[in-house]
């Protein structure tokens, strides 16, 4: 994935969430965004996902600018997958339908084929026997695996994760991180917002530290984690690793 964010600003009413954020990556498999709460990580991710429009600046993914009109944005969103922290799934549909319905209604796959594809994804994520269960009948980790399966179903080029494990206990969160790591190894591009520094260091090739609406530091994750340049990042890492 090639990514370029140029002096991005985003305001909510009078509040400035992003204040001229810059980030350029020539080619990256997996980018992690880290930083303190309220720094603007989720906002950045929503802009890359085409879920909101930036107030200023330009975003390019693989040399193509993220579109401006609603019609084109919808087509753009169809080409990526997004997994949020929690409440990804629709509570009134069972797991299978949660995966199959978008395939059928958004991507125009036939009903039988969407359900077949959903079933094989469920099997791939060791959920083969849970397809008929509603989200309320599944554990948090199982729900999140269904959500990841759904984000993969249409074979997107890029998958975005916003703290996919922070609503889970350590055991389940380890499971989910393993799943994500396999995805990266199988060749999917992804951007992950996470507080799991060990995972970020191991699984991602690039990392960016976002604080107060700006990228304060970015680079190869091995270097960034082992040898932080700005004192704020050093302090942040120290605190994150302490607990």
């Amino acid at each position: 994935m090639k990514l370029s964010l140029e002096s991005i600003t985003k305001t909510y009413g009078a509040h400035r969430a992003l204040k001229g954020l810059d980030l350029k990556l020539e080619s990256s498999r997996c980018l992690t965004l880290i930083g303190p709460s309220g720094g603007g990580k989720s906002t950045t991710l929503r802009l890359i996902a085409g879920l909101e429009k930036a107030s200023g600046g330009s975003i390019q993914v693989n040399n193509k600018p993220v579109p401006q009109t609603e019609e084109e944005l919808r087509r753009y969103r169809k080409s990526i997958g997004v997994v949020f922290q929690s409440y990804n799934l629709f509570p009134h549909f069972d797991a299978l339908t949660n995966i199959a319905l978008p395939l059928e209604k958004v991507h125009g796959v036939s009903r039988e084929e969407s359900r077949d594809r959903a079933q094989s994804l469920l099997s791939q994520f060791k959920l083969a026997t849970h397809g008929r269960k509603k989200p309320s009948e599944l554990s948090g980790g199982q729900n999140q695996r269904v959500a990841i399966a759904r984000s993969l179903a249409h074979n997107p080029d890029l998958i975005l994760f916003d703290e996919p494990t922070s609503a889970l206990d350590p055991e389940m969160s380890a499971q989910i991180l393993d799943v994500i790591e396999e995805l990266i190894q199988s060749g999917k591009d992804c951007v992950i917002v996470t507080h799991q520094m060990g995972f970020a260091k191991r699984a991602s090739d690039y990392a960016a530290f976002i604080s107060r609406g700006k990228v304060e530091e970015s680079g190869k994750s091995l270097e960034l984690f082992d040898n932080p340049q700005c004192p704020e990042l050093a302090q942040f890492l120290e605190r994150e690793l302490k607990y």
Binding site: V82, F84, S86, N88
Partner: peptide, 21 residues
């Protein structure tokens, strides 16, 4: 909830589809 609406948007549902399904 708004999180479901955001999910629906991310999936690529149109506003009509979001309402309907």
């Amino acid at each position: 909830g708004s999180s479901q609406l955001l999910s629906a948007k991310a999936i690529g549902f149109t506003p009509y589809q979001t309402f309907r399904y």
